[in-house]
């Protein structure tokens, strides 16, 4: 587990999300942690038109039909692209997503990989899932306050 975390950190330093289009793909675990903007490789002030173009480009890149060597992984990436586009292309959902991101992460977050974005597919580690659940509860609690 520790080794995994270390490896991930170095990977994050060396490969920036915006440089992934050419050849090298960032590892799936890191891809899953990217924000919706990073997934689509658009700036945070992207217009509806930018999003549409970016979505098509990313659909072509990640569609399982275009990744025959590893369709299972492509399915996960493709779903994430879809999720990102569906959220950001809807002004209401996008506003919700932006305000959710604006809330600073709770202290407990540091021990919970993958919890900064909601709807992240839960990882295989059971403790992670509990953390995600707890965090969601915490977040809801804080929002209600």
């Amino acid at each position: 587990m520790d080794f995994e975390h270390n490896r991930k950190d170095t990977a994050k330093d060396s490969i920036r999300p915006n440089g992934s289009a050419k050849g090298l793909k960032i590892p799936l675990m890191d891809f899953e942690k990217l924000s919706y903007y990073e997934v689509l490789e658009v700036p945070e002030d992207a217009t509806a038109d930018d999003l549409k173009k970016a979505h098509r480009r990313k659909a072509l890149e990640h569609h399982p039909d275009k990744n025959l060597d590893d369709t299972d992984e492509a399915k996960v990436r493709f779903s994430k692209v879809q999720e990102a586009y569906e959220t950001l292309s809807d002004p209401n959902l996008r506003a919700d997503y932006d305000s959710e991101r604006a809330i600073p992460p709770a202290p407990a977050d540091s021990s919970c990989p993958g919890s900064e974005a909601h709807n992240v597919s839960p990882s295989e580690d059971p403790t992670d899932k509990w953390c995600v659940l707890l965090n969601t509860l915490l977040r809801v609690f804080r929002q209600e306050l």
């Binding site: 659909a59 072509l60 569609h63 039909d65 275009k66 025959l68």
Partner: peptide, 20 residues
């Protein structure tokens, strides 16, 4: 979806097509 194409040019056209 099969890499049955021999010509690189035609393969490029196929590579740039996807139906979602």
């Amino acid at each position: 979806l099969s890499k049955a194409e021999k010509s690189a040019e035609a393969q490029k056209v196929l590579d740039e097509m996807v139906v979602v």
